[in-house]
Simulated scan of single mutants.
Amino acid sequence: MTKTVLITGCSTGLGNTAARKFAAEGWNVVATMRKPDERLAAENPERIFVTALDVTDPTSIEGAIAAGIARFGRIDAVVNNAGISIVSIFEATPMNVIRGIFETNVFGAMNVIRAITPHFREQGGGTVVNITSNMGFASNPLLAVYVATKHAVEGLSEALMYELESQNISVKIVEPGAMRTTNFSSNTLSATQGIPIPESYKPYFDHMMQSMMSYPFDNADENQVAAQIYAAACDKSDRLRFLAGPDVEQTAKLRWTESEEKYITAMRDLMGHTAWVNNQEK
C-alpha cells in the first residue's frame, strides 16, 4: 500500500524539498502551507496534493487532515516542519513577538499532533516527525527565543515517544544544522528588523552576528536533511534523534561526550564568545 505523509510549511525551503523527496520515493504527499501554491503539485500531480494549513489554527489543521485523507485515503506520517525565528536581544524582544514564535514552533506542533493522533489510533498507527535543530539541545546567544522553542519541542517529543507508543504511534526528531541554501536565515533576519538593539548590547550584538556569519563548520544541505526526514518517517526502531549536517554532528559530539565544563568552553570558543570576552579584558 502506498504511504502518505502530511508536511507543514511546504511553500519554500526544507518543507518544499522534503515534499519532493517523499514523492520521489513513491509516497503520496499532502503538502501544506498557509497560502497554497499549486506549483509544487504541478510538478507531480499524481503524488503531491497541496492544501492550506495554518499550524496556529486548529480548524485549519483539521481541514487539511480531512482533505488529505479524502484525497489519498489515509495519512501514515506527519512532519512538523513549519517554524520561524528571530535574532534578537532577549531583554528587548517584545512579549507579543515571543508568544508569536511559541505559537508556531511549539503550540503549532502540539496542535498538529493532537489533531492527527485520533486518526493514527483509528487506523492502527502512524509516525510523527518533529523538526527541531542543533539549537534543540544546544544554545546560542541572540537566539534565546528560538532556542527555547526548540528545547520545548525536544522535550515534548521525548515524552510523547513513550506516551504515544501505547497507541502504536512513533515519534521521531530530526535535528538539522544551519542551512544556507534555504530562505530560513533571510526570513529570520527580516523578522528581526523591527526589534531594537539596546545601546549597551550593540558592540556584543555586532560581534556575535559577525561570528554567526563566519561559523567554522560546513552547513547542512537541505537535500541531506530531507533524506533524514524520510529516514525518520520510515524508521521502525527505538531511535529518537536523526542528526542532519556536519555542524550539528560536531555540536552533538561536544554536548554528549564531553563534561559540562569542556562543552561550555568549546561552545564559547566556537561561537566567538571567548574572543569577545578576551577583547573586553585588554
Rank of each mutant, 00 (worst) to 15 (best):
M161E: 11
E163K: 02
A23C: 02
G272Y: 11
K236G: 15
S88V: 03
V29C: 01
D57S: 11
V129G: 08
N28L: 04
G9Y: 04
T8P: 11
Q123D: 01
N28G: 02
I113R: 05
A42R: 15
A82E: 12
G73W: 08
T4Q: 04
S185K: 14
C10I: 00
Y201L: 06
L156M: 14
F137Y: 13
A152R: 08
F102L: 12
N28F: 09
K236Q: 15
A178N: 12
K35Q: 15
C234D: 15
K21A: 12
T51V: 14
Q210G: 14
F90S: 13
A252T: 00
E158K: 11
E249I: 07
V153D: 08
M213I: 07
F107N: 08
V30Q: 08
V78F: 04
L14F: 10
N183T: 14
R99S: 12
C234T: 09
G13P: 02
A275E: 12
A24M: 06
M208N: 08
S166P: 10
C10K: 03
A220V: 10
E260D: 13
G100K: 03
A41G: 13
N105H: 02
D238E: 13
L270H: 03
G26W: 00
W27R: 00
A159C: 08
Y146Q: 01
A52L: 11
D76P: 11
V87W: 10
F90L: 15
S214I: 07
I131F: 10
I86C: 07
S133A: 09
A70I: 04
G125I: 07
G73R: 12
R180M: 10
I229T: 02
S214T: 14
G124V: 02
G124Q: 05
S85R: 06
S157W: 02
I98W: 11
A115I: 05
A64W: 10
T149R: 08
T192M: 06
S259M: 03
T251I: 15
V5A: 00
A41H: 03
A115R: 04
T8L: 04
A42Q: 15
D235M: 03
G83D: 13
Q224G: 09
A115D: 07
T59R: 15
E222H: 11
A24G: 07
V78E: 04
A82I: 00
R47C: 06
A92Q: 05
I229S: 01
H207R: 07
G136R: 11
D54A: 12
A66F: 01
T56F: 09
W256Q: 07
Y201H: 12
R239I: 05
R114S: 10
L6E: 00
A266V: 03
A67H: 02
Y263W: 03
P196K: 13
Q280C: 12
A266I: 00
L243D: 03
A77R: 06
P198C: 03
T265H: 13
